[in-house]
Design a protein around this nucleic acid. Structure first.
Length: 564
RNA sequence: GCACCCGUAGCUCAGUGGAUAGAGCAGCGGAUUUCUAAUCCGCCGGUCGCAGGUUCGAAUCCUGCCGGGUGCGCCA
């Protein structure tokens, strides 16, 4: 339970409220209303707020002075960070953020979209606030699937198909082999043999493997380019291959892992309550071992091994305060085990390990989102469709614009819609994918926010003659102006809040409220037809609104057009 | 079986200890000689799955139950 100064629940109560008196009074055994009165008597908010008021069971409500608000407007206009910079006294944190993680030889699909968009947004916000961020894309470029792919590549590769569409051809090989392996143990053995050769450094197999990576990288870059996403590192699983053996040896030597049924496993250390222990599972009323394998019975390593080696490498190389893994919720148990193993292995390590997980994307039938024919939706196709649909809408609304301009606008709107739809729900919720909803110009959508930006900017093009300098004195004459300004000033509070639990939807909702507040202001307060200080103030509010929306969307990885 | 998540308005979702539970869509009624109406204003709509408990205060925390999803040794 925490004392908090928060925006007032209802504008009638004022601008901000605090529950501090009630919480403190409880601790001190005092009457909350009496104690609130004592606090208020001692409070000195001269210059900032009017006389605070007590209400309800002991809330203290504050109302900002108009001159404090207009001073704030001046300050925000002059501040590139719009007030959201890390406070001077607060040390920068060092964060490693692991997200996206596509697989070599497979087309990126909807399953990668949330990790990619969420991770990118978190990275942008952390940087904006002033933290030191390392982004790392842990690509799936190593593992058992390559044994199968190597067999298929050697036996049935279609060179022409590969040249035309490398990913499609590699996926064809993979599918073919999955079926063959399921049916034929001889093929399974062949795949295993090719994998062993690859792992032993066989020249031919390494060459094919590298070719598959090269072809896949081209595709990744195309997608990330469209999405406007860059990574500091793309250290795939294979990068950690040299350290897997020593990782496992160290775990065995430390007594953390031991052999069981031929595999090397980490079991529960029985130090915590059973139900919280990731290495135990209950069956028939009894707690059974649920170990994590770090070396398979056939001597091969698996993803826990790689993840541990990766964790140790990141710890050593980047010395982070926190490592953030952005993956879907189904991997919760894996990460609980992974973190627990690391804690036992490096009990002195202070690094904070966070699994930032998210829910599924569903079709309108409530089942996992697929194409009509039941196939996985490829990310490239999804982005194409978003742009096409946006193009149709832009053409319908604004047919007078030249096609190239409509294309540019459609790209911004389409990609923005997809990203925003992903960042709007609470990340832990499953959400239903809907083109109509995300591309609607009404409601809480990217196009609505982008339109708000366009409107705020268009005022400045309409100004005749020179654009006046947006200098005070500012004067608030309408309640809508005051409400908008208060809302704009909260950008500084909302952005850092996203990082408390990695919830970009807080920013999405804030931006929507800002846009709504702007439109109300814009309806109620004519800008161009006003004069003097009122006009300058309104122009300043348009300027600040456009910057808050542009920067806010920018932190979510979404661009804005100048016209729509 | 056990663990994790979800159940809030007709639909899609916010709200993870504070005041009378909010938004969008849908529905209904208004506003336009436009600063792009791609907008705004208003109305309608809820037993926050159910039952207990904790406390000044619970959609939120705890317990049990019902319903749905996901995960549980050699895939990642």
């Amino acid at each position: 339970m925490e004392a908090r100064l928060a925006p007032a629940a209802d504008a009638r109560f004022g601008d901000y409220q605090t529950n501090a008196a009630m919480l403190l009074a409880k601790k001190l055994g005092k009457n909350p209303r009496v104690f609130a009165a004592e606090l208020m008597a001692a409070f000195d908010g001269t210059g900032l707020v009017l006389e605070p008021e007590m209400a309800g069971p002991g809330f203290i409500n504050f109302r900002l002075r108009p001159e404090a608000l207009t001073a704030r407007l001046e300050g925000l206009l002059a501040d590139e960070k719009l007030g959201a910079a890390r406070p001077q006294g607060m040390a920068a944190r060092r964060l490693v953020i692991d997200f996206s993680g596509p697989n070599v030889a497979k087309a990126m699909h909807v399953g990668h979209i949330r990790s990619t968009i969420l991770g990118d947004a978190v990275a942008r916000i952390a940087r904006w606030v002033g933290h030191v961020v390392v982004t790392d894309n842990h690509i799936g470029d190593w593992g058992t699937q390559f044994g199968m792919l190597l067999v298929a590549w050697k036996e049935s590769l279609d060179r022409e198909a590969l040249a035309a569409d490398p990913l499609a051809e590699m996926e064809r090989l993979y599918k073919e082999m999955t079926a063959r392996c399921a049916a034929d143990p001889v093929v399974r053995e062949a795949a295993k043999a090719e994998l062993v050769k690859l792992q032993a450094g066989d020249v031919e197999n390494l060459g094919i493997w590298k070719e598959m990576i090269r072809l896949s990288q081209t595709q990744f870059q195309a997608i990330y380019g469209r999405l406007g996403i860059e990574f500091d590192h793309m250290l795939g699983e294979s990068f950690y291959n040299p350290w897997l053996g020593e990782t496992v040896d160290a775990l065995a030597a430390a007594g953390i892992a031991r052999e069981s049924e031929g595999a090397l496993c980490v079991f529960s250390d029985r130090t915590g309550p059973e139900k919280d222990d990731p290495f135990l599972v209950s069956r028939d009323g009894q707690w059974h071992d649920n170990p994590s394998l770090v070396r398979k019975a056939d001597g091969g390593f698996n993803y826990t091994t790689t993840d541990l080696a990766t964790l140790v490498y990141r710890q050593r190389e980047f010395t982070p305060d926190q490592i953030v893994y952005v993956t879907d919720g189904r991997q919760q148990l894996h990460f609980r085990q992974l973190f627990a193993i690391f804690r036992r292995w490096y009990p002195e390590a202070g690094v904070q390990l966070s699994h930032v997980w998210f829910g599924a994307i569903l079709g309108d039938d409530g089942r996992p989102f697929k194409t009509r024919s039941g196939e996985t939706v490829k990310l490239a196709d999804l982005l194409d469709e978003a742009e096409e649909r946006a193009f149709a809408l832009v053409t319908e609304k604004n047919p007078g614009l030249p096609e190239s301009e409509r294309r540019d606008i459609a790209r911004i709107i389409g990609l923005g819609a997809v990203k925003y739809a992903d960042l709007l729900p609470n990340r832990q919720s499953d959400y239903i994918f809907s083109w109509d909803k995300m591309l609607s110009f009404q409601g809480n959508t990217a196009p609505y926010l982008q339109y708000s930006y366009v409107r705020a900017r268009s005022i400045f093009r309409k100004l005749e003659g020179e654009i006046p300098s947006l200098q005070g004195p500012f004067v608030l004459t309408d309640p809508a102006e005051r409400a908008l300004l208060l809302q704009l000033s909260r950008f500084a509070e909302e952005v850092p809040r996203v990082l408390e639990d990695f919830r970009p939807n807080l920013l999405s909702n804030y931006l929507f409220e800002t846009a709504t507040s702007f439109h109300s202001f814009f309806e109620a307060c004519p800008v161009l037809r006003s004069e003097g200080e009122a006009k300058i103030t309104r122009l300043a509010l348009c300027e600040l609104t456009s910057r808050v929306i542009q920067q806010g969307l920018g932190l979510l990885g979404i661009n804005v057009p100048e016209k729509m």
